[in-house]
C-alpha cells in the first residue's frame, strides 16, 4: 500500500492561509491504514486548524469529510459536504488522490496535507517499511522475494556494495542492508546460484525514465468505449 506522512502543520497552515472556508478530505484507503489520512485524521486536522485559526484570530471555517478512495471519481458521490461550497479542499490522500481530485474538482483548489513517501507494508504496530519501488520490472523472482531496488539504498542489482556492515546499510545503523537480507534468504533457500548470475544493466525505461506511465486494460477499456458510443 501507499504510505504517507502528514506535512508539518506550519506548512499546511501556510497552504490554507489564502482561504476562509476549507474542507479537510480524508481518504479511506491506504492512508487510513497507515494512520495518516483517514476520517479520524481529517477530524483531528480540521480541529487543529480551527484551534490555530482561533488562536491567530483568523476568519477560517473548517469541515471534514472522507470518501472510500480519492483515486476514483465515483466515490465523490458519497461526499457529505459539497466541495464547491469551499474555497479549498485540503486532501489527506496520497499524491494520487490529491492529483486526481484536482481534476475531479476543477473549480476548487485541492491542497496536499500529506507527503507521499513509499509503497510499504506494516512491519510492526504503527511501523511501516518500504518494500517496493514501483520500478515496472520486478526482479523478486531471483532475489528471494526481497527487492534490491526498494530495499538497497542504491538499488544495486549485482550484490552488496562495500558499505554493508553487520547486516546494516552505510546510510544508517537502523536500516537493514537489502543485499544482506537477499543473501541470507537465498542462502536459506539454497539458491545462491541466483546471486552468482550476472545481472546486466537494468532497463529503467519501465521506471520513471520512460515518462508518465499508464495502464490500459484492453478488455475493460474497449467496453467503456463502446458504451460511450
Amino acid at each position: 500500500m501507499i504510505v504517507a506522512e502528514r506535512k508539518p502543520f506550519d506548512e499546511i497552515v501556510e497552504m490554507v492561509a489564502p482561504y476562509k472556508k476549507v474542507l479537510v478530505l480524508g481518504c479511506g484507503s491506504c492512508v487510513t491504514v497507515c494512520l495518516t489520512g483517514g476520517e479520524r485524521q481529517a477530524e483531528i486536522l480540521a480541529s487543529q486548524l480551527r484551534l490555530a485559526g482561533r488562536k491567530k484570530g483568523l476568519d477560517l471555517s473548517v469541515d471534514f469529510d472522507c470518501i472510500t478512495r480519492q483515486c476514483d471519481r465515483e466515490f465523490t458521490e458519497n461526499l457529505k459536504f459539497d466541495p464547491a461550497e469551499y474555497d479549498a479542499v485540503l486532501s489527506l490522500a496520497c499524491g494520487v488522490g490529491v492529483g486526481f481530485m484536482s481534476g475531479v474538482l476543477p473549480d476548487t483548489p485541492v491542497l496536499p496535507a500529506l507527503n507521499t513517501t513509499f509503497y510499504g507494508a506494516g512491519v510492526a504496530e504503527g511501523v511501516w517499511e518500504e518494500y517496493c519501488h514501483g520500478c515496472g520490472d520486478c526482479v523478486l523472482a531471483w532475489t528471494g522475494g526481497i527487492c534490491p531496488i526498494a530495499r538497497c539504498s542504491k538499488s544495486l542489482i549485482n550484490g552488496a556494495c562495500g558499505g554493508t556492515n553487520d547486516g546494516k546499510c552505510e546510510v544508517s545503523q537502523d536500516m537493514d542492508c537489502g543485499w544482506h537480507l537477499i543473501y541470507k534468504r537465498l542462502q536459506e533457500l539454497g539458491r545462491l546460484d541466483e546471486l552468482r548470475k550476472m545481472r546486466p544493466p537494468r532497463d529503467w525505461s519501465k521506471n520513471r525514465s520512460g515518462g508518465v506511465r499508464r495502464l490500459s486494460r484492453e478488455e475493460m477499456a474497449e467496453i467503456a468505449q463502446e458504451s460511450a458510443e
Binding site: 549485482n158 550484490g159 552488496a160 562495500g162 554493508t164 556492515n165 553487520d166 547486516g167 543485499w179 544482506h180 543473501y183 545462491l192 546471486l195 552468482r196 550476472m198
Partner: peptide, 18 residues
Amino acid sequence: CVTPCADEVEPQIIKLEK
C-alpha cells in the same frame, strides 16, 4: 575493489567473481 575482511565474506567473493 573488494572488502576482504567483511563480516560476511561470501557475498563479497561472489560479487568479485562477477
